[in-house]
């Protein structure tokens, strides 16, 4: 077995007005990958493809060492999934949800479930209908974590949360991956969330993978320079990754090794990198 939690090889899926083509991506075991893309970039489609909720046209996807079309049932208990909102009957309270989940997951752990609920301050005496968006998401996350998964897949899961809560969720992610055979794939368009905790960053744009690399390397590899029109013309155009014009100058994103000496380089964060790349494309 290879050491990847998820391996996607040359996957294609086409719709009338949108396609994912020749898409390959690997999530090494034990790491957190942030899948970043603007709305409609294909993040959810990709996640659904991974979970075999929609069928791919071609290519292969392996999840926890199993082919996702033929053998996914074998590892389904090991995957925790949080899609935008959990589908739970509206009139249930957490106690009843616990009972149901006990019968669904072979390795459901009630203690974990109630511990997380307490930690995340999910109310026990309210029905699901009365939950706020944030509470629903927290419940979804709790359910995903309570059957001891090896792989956690979250689609825009932390979007409905306030900054303090997001921070707590990040803590939970860090705690979760303390164990080296647990991995997380988390998609978001809120880049600052992922900036901190991810080992790998993958940029998705219009169904394509723009890049995927170790986060630290990305930040070290690229830099932004501020230059004038004249200076811009002297730069090697093929080395320019992205640029932003203002009336007062031009910001250019380049690989640091291509930046001519003598120009002042400022550091980029993941968000800058993403915006620059998407705009240029």
């Amino acid at each position: 077995m290879n050491n990847n939690a998820i391996t996607i090889q040359e996957v294609a899926k086409s719709y009338k007005d949108f396609q994912i083509e020749n898409f390959s991506l690997e999530l090494p075991s034990g790491s957190i990958m942030g899948l970043i893309g603007e709305n409609g970039a294909g993040k959810t489609t990709l996640i659904k493809l991974i979970l075999n909720m929609i069928r791919k046209d071609s290519g292969t996807i392996t999840v926890l060492g199993k082919d996702n079309e033929k053998e996914l049932t074998a590892v389904k208990d090991d995957i925790g999934v949080v899609l935008d909102e959990p589908c739970i009957p509206e009139y249930l309270k957490t106690k009843e949800i616990n009972k149901i989940m006990k019968n669904i997951f072979a390795n459901w752990n009630e203690n974990t479930f109630f511990d997380y609920l307490k930690k995340l301050k999910v109310p026990e005496n309210k029905t699901f209908k009365e939950f706020s968006k944030g509470m629903k998401m927290k419940l979804g996350l709790t359910i995903a974590l309570s059957h001891d998964p090896k792989l956690l897949i979250l689609d825009e899961a932390t979007n409905g949360l306030d900054p303090v809560m997001r921070d707590e969720v990040n803590d939970i992610f860090m705690e979760f991956t303390r164990n080296a055979d647990r991995s997380i794939l988390v998609s978001s368009h809120i880049v600052s969330d992922l900036d901190k905790i991810c080992d790998y960053i993958a940029f998705m744009h219009e169904g394509k993978l723009l890049l995927c690399d170790e986060k630290d390397l990305l930040l070290e590899k690229y830099g932004v320079i501020n230059c004038t029109k004249e200076e811009l013309q002297k730069l090697d155009t093929s080395a320019i990754v992205g640029k932003k014009k203002t009336p007062y100058g031009i910001n250019v994103l380049m690989e640091r090794r291509n930046i001519p000496q003598g120009l002042k380089i400022s550091a980029v964060d993941v968000e800058d990198l993403f915006v620059f790349m998407v705009k240029e494309n």
Partner: peptide
């Protein structure tokens, strides 16, 4: 390596490096 990364809330790859 892993615990240090998780305690500092940074990437495992960073601490490994």
């Amino acid at each position: 390596i892993r615990n240090l990364a998780k305690d500092l809330r940074i990437s495992v790859i960073t601490t490994k490096r």
